[in-house]
Write a protein that binds this DNA or RNA. Structure first.
Length: 273
DNA sequence: ACTTCTCCCTGTGGGC
DNA sequence: TGCCCACAGGGAGAAG
């Protein structure tokens, strides 16, 4: 579920509560939660101070005072919960860290998410080097990205989900962006006009900015929540998950179709491009 | 070299 | 009412 806006909400929360703090202990409760060597993580983190945070696409990281990073990917169900010791009682706690009087819990029901200790490769940690810039990145080149998208022999939906072309977009915001730009999800990327490819990216950025604005209010002082989704999902989605409900633009029922192996929601009447 | 498929996991919800 | 199973999701790695 968490896509760029939700990950950004989490990153901001971690920035607020964790920068300047030092890891005392790290307990890995489920080996799948760590990519790379489990022993390394538990042994390397204690004593390291958090100097900042970063993010790209659906990845986020904490920068450490040894020059390396703790890379985090929430995948579908990961949560980074910050609070007083004993505050989290979930059967899905995968990693628990103590930083002074603060406890950081990585909770992940489906165990797809992960932590990884890694050095930097320029701007980003090594495991993220292949991930493209996201639409919130000041150096994101919208025109060039649209041009590269238009070289692909795949459906637009598939191309939008390719994190090596543009990162941070998942199934939800892809569907919303295509609805806003009135482009069919199964449209071959190669067949798009430049202006339409640009329009999809502009709308993707716009819808994610609105989502971020709403998600930014969803955590209090000691609780960082991935549920930045709650307010946004129920009110503002025009396409995703809306099968059978009237399109707010034209009144036609939103339809659902599998594109590139992913369920895609669209308006059959006004998404004509 | 590029594109598509498979798999990891588990709670939810739709169908019978 | 209760059971069962398809589905959802991101991305690594395999297969096409």
């Amino acid at each position: 579920m968490p896509e760029l806006p939700e990950v950004e909400v989490v990153r901001r929360g971690l920035e607020t509560h964790l920068v300047g703090r030092t890891f005392d202990t790290v307990d890995v409760l489920h080996p799948r939660a760590v990519r790379g060597n489990t022993e390394d993580l538990a042994q390397l983190l204690p004593g390291k101070r958090i100097t900042g945070t970063g993010g790209r696409g659906k990845y986020l990281w904490l920068t450490l005072d040894d020059g390396a990073a703790l890379v985090v990917h929430l995948r579908m169900s990961g949560q980074m919960l910050v609070g007083p010791p004993g505050g989290v009682q979930s059967p899905h706690v995968r990693i628990r860290a103590q930083l002074g009087e603060i406890q950081l819990d990585f909770v992940d029901q489906r165990t797809f998410g992960m932590w990884q200790y890694a050095p930097f490769d320029g701007e980003v940690p090594v495991p993220i080097a292949h991930i493209a810039r996201d639409p919130f990145d000041p150096h994101f080149d919208l025109t060039a990205t649209a041009r590269v998208m238009r070289t692909k022999r795949s459906a637009l939906k598939t191309v939008l989900l390719n994190q090596e072309l543009v990162s941070g977009i998942g199934s939800i915001y892809a569907d919303e962006a295509m609805w806003a730009a009135r482009v069919k999800p199964w449209r071959m990327a190669r067949a798009l006009r430049q202006r339409d490819a640009v329009s999809v990216l502009v709308h993707a950025r716009e819808v994610m900015e609105r989502a971020l604005a709403q998600g930014g209010t969803s955590f209090d002082s000691l609780y960082v929540n991935v549920n930045g989704a709650s307010g946004y999902f129920s009110r503002s989605l025009n396409a995703y998950g809306q099968a059978g409900t009237p399109c707010v633009r034209c009144g036609t029922e939103i339809a659902k179709r599998v594109v590139g192996g992913r369920s895609s929601y669209y308006c059959p009447a006004c998404q004509t491009l």
